[in-house]
């Protein structure tokens, strides 16, 4: 089937019609709003332009992003490094599973006071909060992915003397990678939430801190513009992640699409 430009435009129109309608509706309904808490959308957009496309991007959005990347990277690394041996050795898994089950059930924000006590209100605490929340889906999915490796491929590795680190790089990690990436996707959204909560809790800089400061000082249009910025932040990261996913798992999606078509 050949995709013509017309078809793509049609598809685009379908995708855009509802978001644009909702946006227009909100713009129109709020235009004459005198409600203090719900100012006109146009005013919020104007503040958005002035604040977030201006200095605030550097002073608040970038620090938030930095903490998120640091915490998320540690969570990914630790989740995989701990998850791989647990997936490979059943005895280890049996011993560790109930403990992990308990720790992942603790709502991550509940650990913020503990981490504040241990690390103060600085960046270390915020990064640690992100790690303690984002690591679980990554770790658990790594365990599942490694556990589910194909037995014939495993025998192939054994007969061709593929062992040790080479086995890890060429067999164990790639075969678990689709499941690991699923965990990373969930971990990312949890990481964003915890980034915001940790900043709200210890208000200094960052998106979460800025929003809560605006709210406390009743700068309502500014506050809503921050909420909008946060929404766009989450959306942009999920788009970036999807691009990464498609690229890193090219083989997996290719294989799956082929199976679906047949």
């Amino acid at each position: 089937m050949v995709r013509t430009t017309g078809k793509i435009l049609h598809r685009l129109a379908i995708e855009l019609v509802l978001p644009l309608a909702l946006f227009g509706l909100l713009l129109a309904v709020s235009a004459n709003s005198t409600n203090f808490y719900f100012p006109p959308l146009a005013r919020v957009l104007e503040r958005f332009d002035a604040l977030w496309l201006g200095p605030r991007f550097v002073t608040d959005v970038l620090p938030s992003l930095g903490r998120l990347i640091a915490g998320y990277a540690i969570a990914c690394l630790a989740g995989v490094v701990i998850g791989v041996p647990l997936g490979m050795f059943a005895a280890l898994r049996r011993a560790a599973e109930p403990v992990l089950e308990f720790f992942r059930a603790i709502p991550p924000p509940a650990l913020i006071p503990v981490l504040v006590m241990l690390a103060g209100f600085g960046d270390t605490m915020k990064v640690a909060v992100i790690v303690t929340g984002a690591i679980w889906p990554i770790l658990l999915n790594t365990v599942e992915g490694v556990k589910g490796a194909d037995s014939v491929l495993d025998e192939t590795c054994r007969t061709y003397q593929i062992r040790g680190m080479s086995r890890l790089w060429n067999f164990v990690l790639p075969s678990a990678s689709p499941q690991i990436v699923v965990g990373m996707r969930v971990g990312l959204s949890i990481g964003i939430i915890l980034m915001v909560i940790s900043e709200m809790f210890a208000a200094t800089t960052g998106l979460g801190a800025a929003i809560i400061v605006f709210q406390r000082s009743f700068e309502i249009p500014e506050m809503w513009s921050g909420v909008l910025m946060l929404g766009l932040f989450g959306f942009a990261l999920s788009v970036v992640f999807r691009l990464f996913e498609r690229r890193a798992l090219k083989w997996y999606y290719g294989m799956r699409d082929l199976e679906r078509r047949s």
Binding site: I193, F214, Q215, W224, G234, F235, S238
Partner: peptide, 14 residues
Amino acid sequence: RPIPSVALIPGVIL
């Protein structure tokens, strides 16, 4: 969907 739920916090406080 990717909009973090915590973005609603200031709104619900109000």
